[in-house]
Design a protein around this nucleic acid. Sequence first.
RNA 1: GGCGCGGUACCCAAGUGGUAAGGGAGAGGUCUGCAAAACCUUUAUGCGCCGGUUCGAUCCCGGCCCGCGCCUCCA
Length: 492
Amino acid sequence: MNLRLFNTLSGQLDEVLPADGAVLRMYACGPTVYDYGHIGNFRTFLQVDILRRALRLFGVPVRHVMNITDVDDKIIRNAAAAGVPIAEYTPKFEQAFLEDLDSLAVERPEILTRATQHISEMVHLVERLAGKNAAYRTEDGNWYFRLKAFPEYGKLSKKDLEGMTDGARVDVDEYERDSARDFALWKATNAGETGWETAIGRGRPGWHLECSAMAMEYLGESFDLHAGGEDLMFPHHENEIAQSESATGKMFARHWFHVRFLLVNGRKMSKSEGNFFTLRDLLLRSYKASAIRLALISVPYRHQLNFTFDGLVEATSAIDRLRTFASRLRAASLEDGSTAAGLATAACAQESFLAALANDLNTAEARAAIFELVRDGNIALDAGRLRSEDRDAMLRVLDVFDSVFAVIADNDAAPTKTAVEWARAHGKLNEVAPELLAASTLTDAEIDARVEERNLARRQRNFRRADEIRDELASLGIILEDGRDGVRWKRK
RNA sequence: GGCGCGGUACCCAAGUGGUAAGGGAGAGGUCUGCAAAACCUUUAUGCGCCGGUUCGAUCCCGGCCCGCGCCUCCA
């Protein structure tokens, strides 16, 4: 089965296959490391993660490059405010970003590259463009791309260059430019400001330049797929295409993948709306990393996702159901052999799952296929109709599901712990949910002791005392479940 | 103003020209000292409104209403 994906450039679903028949080369725009990542950022990175995991599932090896933008206006401004050079300002946010990716089970790209480590490649690109009369230097030392040199400008975002100046807010003070739409390749800077001494003068790169230079460096002048948030389509990606294709004369990326912005409580996320959340905010409120991941990937990437706390609660319950089913299957003692119905249920679920993903990464439908397996599997289990090979087949389907969704395997403790430690180190303990703090004050041994105490009371049929202990632990975020095989407890 | 997306049960959310997946929540049941958990069952004669095409439309076409996004730093 081959993956068909919507291609912004062609405007239709296209099969995604490596042009060289071997490895799919993809570039995904990464973060600008000037602050902690928010859930909007992560929806995009998560959907790119789904893409690369799905490609692997379909047997397509991937070479995935992601940039870290470690020099830009906001970084320079924030670093200046903090009184440090940008090289001292950005590493902690880059580190936090990578930690957050780990928390969300986002696979690392094969190659991570930083803008500041590719200044010479960028300068070289400007020189190539200048050689083709597609770039020019103004008196103040800035370099601009000459839009007139690239008639195809607008082909990605379907914008008509002529109509664009109407209504668009264009900086009319930039009188030096040939055209107000010409974009900056290189910004001249003074001695005291962040900059590099180069053959094209002292300065720093414009934003778009880094992606073209680094994509070509690691993937070649022409490659398979380029990904990013929908906001990047214009002008960022359009400008990348213009400068890259003008320089090389070759098609830059064949396939363009854009992830739609999410809404939070029905509005665009913004600090002024009070609906702006970083991943860390949510972890500290005691939402599990897996639930955040599932909430952010359950709505297909081209649809607007309305992120809410209710949605997070729903995702938490949904994951519990999946995990319970998996452990029920593993624990069941079953007769050897298989049944036609059991194997068919597994095969059918897998087929629907793969077909849904192959159809433009329809994660909602893919998820539904797995929940049908859960229901049918539970029914067969209850009826005693399941045999060991049926179980094995179903577990294998769950593995296939989790190779893309990555929510059944329970790795939730580490992200929460990391977040709480981070809060402690940054004087943000007041932002940590009380039960999270409370739960971390009791060791496992202490909890076990309390549970044992309660068991004793129960054996003596002193239920009043038993309930007291249960309530007490509940207030500390410890949940008890009395089962057939004893008492299980878990931290909320 | 230009470009684009969406309005499906209490909430979230797929989907198809032939009569509505899935998840959550609620209700009922099984189990239990109680509870929780778990499992099962159940919940839209209808898919924003009005026309049209069709044997038949939630799905196609036109109009309208509402919500949202991009066009500017932004994932």
